[in-house]
Design a protein around this nucleic acid. Structure first.
Lengths: 123, 123
DNA sequence: TGTCGATATGTACAGACGGGAATATCGTCA
DNA sequence: TGACGATATTCCCGTCTGTACATATCGACA
């Protein structure tokens, strides 16, 4: 149960911006989910991720960039708090998605080639 | 000491060919080193990597593809054995390097953009 | 035939990662 | 003003990864 079924056959890669700072599918998906659910708890639940991990990733992201990508509130509105993407967060996410698509297109031929060389399997 | 200084400032990404099979900078560098040193021990030492880890990665690679990427001999010739890249191994390595370059070019603009948004640091 | 140097392999141990649970904090609303 | 629901934070512990150590194996060569 180390890794769930989230890793499908699709191409997954992560961009290392700096030795300690990387942006990959996990964080991107999380940002997206936060933007949609407007809640860390809900976003985490979507992936079966623990709240703690979700919050750790958000903190990491916020600390890595010059401004927060995710803004949170504790008490209040409606339920009792919430989260939302900042403008920067939205921008970063969009950028990543674009890079993802670009890179995928760039190495598509190579991936096809390499996959043909893999050992036979039922997959 | 979990991560050494191997992760430079350059762009590092890994290609996931199949859920369990990934090809990244580590394995590529290792393949390259094996091709040059013709020895698992020497290749491992080059990165300060333990011999066992080196051998595990090689085994993993060989098992993943339809044929071995690295061929080894136990006793004999000169010192007492050795290793070398097969034709397939050479091909796979070359392919990966090409994909690496292509992808890097494709997302270069995005990386530049995102890096400009990182928190200020001495790096 | 015995030595040497490399591959091949298992065992034990240490550290990192992540999960779970418990707890604190906060602000709106009934 | 008290309850609720969400964020925020810490501790404990199991799991996994990889290192270190030890050892087996093998084949050319002196």
């Amino acid at each position: 149960m180390t890794q769930f079924a989230n890793v499908t056959e699709g191409l997954r890669f992560r961009v290392v911006l700096k030795p300690g700072v990387a942006l990959g599918p996990g964080k991107a998906d999380l940002l997206e989910a936060i933007g949609e659910t407007r809640s860390l708890t809900a976003a985490a639940a979507r992936f079966g991720m623990s709240y703690k991990r979700c919050w750790s990733l958000v903190r990491e992201l916020n600390a890595s960039f010059r401004a927060a990508l995710v803004e949170t509130e504790k008490g209040g509105t409606g339920g009792g708090g919430g989260a939302r993407l900042t403008e920067l967060g939205t921008h970063v996410l969009a950028r990543y998605r674009q890079m993802e698509a670009d890179a995928e297109a760039a190495i598509e031929a190579g991936v096809t080639d390499l996959r043909a060389l893999l050992a036979d399997e039922t997959s």
